[in-house]
Every structure is written in C-alpha cells, then in structure tokens.
Amino acid sequence: MSKKRRFKTSLGDQFLRLVTFLMAFSVLVLMAWMGWQMFDAARPSIHTFGFGFITSRVWDPVKEQFGALPFIYGTLMTSLLALLLAAPIGLGVAIFLNEMAESKFRAVIGFLVEMLAAIPSVVYGLWGIFVLAPWLRETVEPGLAKWLGFVPLFQGTPVGFGMLAGGLILAMMILPTIAAISREVMASVPNMQREAALALGATKWEMIKVAVLPYAKTGIMGGIMLGLGRALGETMAVTMVIGNRPDILPSLFAPAYSMAAVIANEFTEATYDLYLSALVEVGFILFGITLVLNFLARLLVWSVARGPKGGNLV
C-alpha cells in the first residue's frame, strides 16, 4: 500500500513559492525577450549578408558592406589576452592574501584589490590613453619587438593603441574579480585539509597544491568565468585604447576593434536602416558568444569538479 504523504504547506509559504517562482521566471523571460528583439531588429542584415556577416572582414558603411569578423576576432583576442594575464596574477594575489600574508596586512591589501573593481571603466580608459598607451609605444612594444620580434605577434610599428593595450586594460579590470572570488573560495577550504597536508610533511607550497587548490578549483574557475564575462562585454575602456580599426592583423601592436566598441562608436552615426541592423546583429552575436562561452565554461567546471568516482564536489 503506497500512499503519498503530503505535508500541508501554509498559505503564506505557497504564496512565497509563487512569488519567488515568478521572479526567477522573469529573468528567463527577460533574456529570451532580449534575444528575440535583437534577432528581430537584426533581420535585414541577416537577410542581406547571411553567414557572410560572420566570415567577412570588410566593414565599409559607405559601400554598405558589413562583415563582423574583425570585431569578433578583436573581442576574443583581447579577452583571451586579459585572461592569460589576469588569471595567474589573480590566483597569485589570492594565494598570497589567504595563505601567506599576516592578518592585518591581509585586510588592507584585500580591500585595495577589491577597490580596483569599483573604479569606473572610463577612468581606466583615460589612464589607458594618457599613461598605458604612451608607455607601451615608447618602452614595452619596442622592447618586445627587440627580444621576441621573431614571433609575428610582436612585429610591426609600436603604436601604443591596439590589441595589446586593450588586453592589458581588460586584464587590470578583471584582476580584482578573479582575485576576490579566488580568495573567497580559498578561505572556505576547511583548515583540516591544510593540516592534513602539513602533517604529511608538506611545505607551504605543497600544501597549497595538494590541499587548497584542488578543493577550491571549481570556485576559482567560476571566478575566472566571471572575469571572462566582464572582459567580453567591457566597452568604454577598450574603446578608448584599442585603436578602433576594423582589421585583422597578426601583430598585437596593431590597432583593432571589438564588438562592444563598434556598437558604442557607430550607433549614433548609423544613418540608414541596414547599417543600424548590422550593428544590432553585432550585438546579437556578442550576446550569443557570451552565452556559449559561459555554457562551455560551465561544462568545463562540471567535468573538473567530478573528480574520482563516488565523490562529487559540487
């Protein structure tokens, strides 16, 4: 005899359930609606250029030719560059603050690192224009060209404003996100895990490697993902330093363009419908790339978190 037992839930709880469900559902609706609106507004451009929009390198509003590849390339490259720089440094900051620094020191530096995230991106952009770009042009890029000039990435005229500047400024902007989240996650590693490693004769670094990082890796990757999300969508600071030239050049010194930057720069100048529609399609693609990359990153986190049989970490 099996009869399902139900606990009677109070009216208030039922109401709470309904309200919170609606709130959660509204997020989904909002996202689908935004996606649809963008798709709808991009339709003229999609009809005219089809797949060629993603594969074409020509962006010429005068001749009514629109191809988004340079922007896609610029967004992905700057974000990748930013991740390559910010992920190891952010992790290093988190390790230092959590495992090495003395407690008074820890609070101060931790606060300063998190402050970095609060600086408006236009301020980063100004700093990029007046400090970072000249420094890159006069010191860093000639140096790189001299020592690593055999790599195509480091060839060409040092301009200052370009892919490298965009990547660097993004790295600075996502560093606090990655550092703060990694630090939070590492702080949640139970102390008995650290002691287990130390009691086996681990040095501090070995303890971090054996006990802290494996335990925290899922959360650290989550932090890196958030950083990536921010890098993909960041507009202002990148627009100010990337050089804004729709071209795909092998050198990191050369000017480039990103999806967010082209939308911000050209939206007010889009004088005819197809132009406007093409810009919206760029936005639609950015929306899609962000979703897909986040989805892939989530898959990666799951596969890493699974670990050995019978012990799921998430």
């Binding site: 139970p190 895990q193 009691a199 086996l200 890796k217 670990g307 012990g311 970490l313």
Partner: peptide, 18 residues
C-alpha cells in the same frame, strides 16, 4: 612531520583524490 605522523579527530581525506 615525516618522522612524526598525525591522525586527526575528524577523518580528513583529500576529497579531490582517489
């Protein structure tokens, strides 16, 4: 600590390891 081993109050195997 390689000569003096220790076992703790609560079992603390490394969860990410087999």
């Amino acid at each position: 600590r390689k000569t003096v081993g220790m076992v703790f109050q609560k079992p603390n195997p490394f969860p990410s390891m087999s």
